[in-house]
Design a protein around this nucleic acid. Structure first.
Lengths: 214, 214
DNA sequence: CACTGTGAACTGTTTCACAGCA
DNA sequence: TGCTGTGAAACAGTTCACAGTG
């Protein structure tokens, strides 16, 4: 079940926010939560929360609300983050290095299992130095994807290298790309792409700050 | 003019993408671009591009399309990224350090003018070491905001510290926050907030990869 | 003639309001 | 009573199709 069709994309995006907030309630020892409380903590209406959750199943209990641990478990299952998965990183610059030490991967069931770069001077290096992961050339990607059953790749190369790096990832067997390069990747629509462009975020804030100018 | 009201939020988001792509065309020496070409390069329809741009003014030329340098100039002006602005960073962990060396700020007219952290062992340190920016305590924020006329702040502290750090930023005079903490910040609605949650992006990809599961 | 700008039709999303249930 | 789940209504965003223009 849980057809991804029919479900509005914005509802899927919010599901992640519900999960994140539910974990806060769990840590606070709250056994159940109402759609009103959950919505309020995220700046959403109660109706929105109920409708979103209802797309994925019947999780609530009339008169009670949603049982926090139960709902967390079920949302994790829907997201597919209830099981461990390996990821790889392509591009070991400032941001790539920062992400290699990012705790959030573990929190969501992911582990960085391999790292790649085009620059020969970085290949063979370990990040973090000493005990860390070995930086490998892009040519080693297909073998790593097979060895660690990797389906998701993080792309942190400079803009001009992004499209060709993405193609190398897809050729190596990657099925989903988290793209930090400020580029619209042209890849097979079967491959899921999610982009984080910090420049775009800065511009949005600049626009909203200036409100409206002549 | 250019009322921010009336204009759909998704259109404003896409305006940044248009600008990014226009810069690619400019670098390629393309003097004009049609809504069809611009849309195709971003995976959008021509009608979408025309309608989006028309919200902000009449930029096109019948029979010709849009003149690339002219449109870049006008979009930058609309975004408010045609003039220099200082920003500050709160939270000098892995991600904060990576962002302090991030070239994208300059590209969009921003400069990191000050950096803050709560951890006394980091205060007084320079990032990058030697010539870099001095890490200051949060108490120094109001003075820095005044001195450098800072309106935008980047928040890269751990989740539990995010809400209070955001409040300190707003109290210091910050008007827009780029938030990397996995938290929904509760601040005055006058303050613009844009959040980047890497965990949420990973989860979206996980969901879309699994397509639909039992 | 190739193109934009735009009202009108359409599609998708959110909000409302209430029946049903523990 | 307090709450969910859900059709129906309202709203928002996108696509269509074409008149207008250099």
């Amino acid at each position: 079940m849980t057809r991804a069709d029919n479900i509005p994309a914005p509802a899927v995006r919010r599901l992640s926010l519900y999960l994140r907030q539910l974990e806060v309630f769990l840590a606070g020892g709250k056994p159940t939560v109402s759609s009103r409380e959950l919505g309020q903590s995220l700046g959403l209406s109660a109706a929105q929360v109920r409708k979103d959750l209802a797309y994925f199943g019947q999780f609530g209990h009339a008169g009670i609300g949603y049982r926090v641990p139960e709902l967390i478990h079920r949302v994790r299952r829907i997201m597919g983050t209830d099981k461990h998965a390996n990821v790889l990183i392509v591009g070991v610059g400032n941001l790539g290095r920062a992400l290699m030490s990012f705790r959030g991967f573990t929190k969501h069931g992911f582990e960085v299992a391999a790292a790649f770069d085009k620059d020969p001077s970085k290949i063979g290096e370990r990040v973090p130095p000493g005990e860390g992961l070995l930086i490998q050339p892009l040519s080693a990607m297909p073998a790593a994807v097979r060895k660690f059953s990797i389906r998701l790749g993080v792309l942190t190369v400079p803009a001009p290298a992004a499209q060709s790096a993405a193609e190398a990832m897809v050729d190596a067997g990657i099925r989903a790309i988290l793209n930090f390069a400020p580029v619209t990747l042209q890849v097979d629509p079967e491959v899921a792409v999610s982009s984080v462009d910090i420049g775009v975020h800065l511009e949005q804030l600049s626009f909203r700050m200036n409100g409206s100018v002549s």
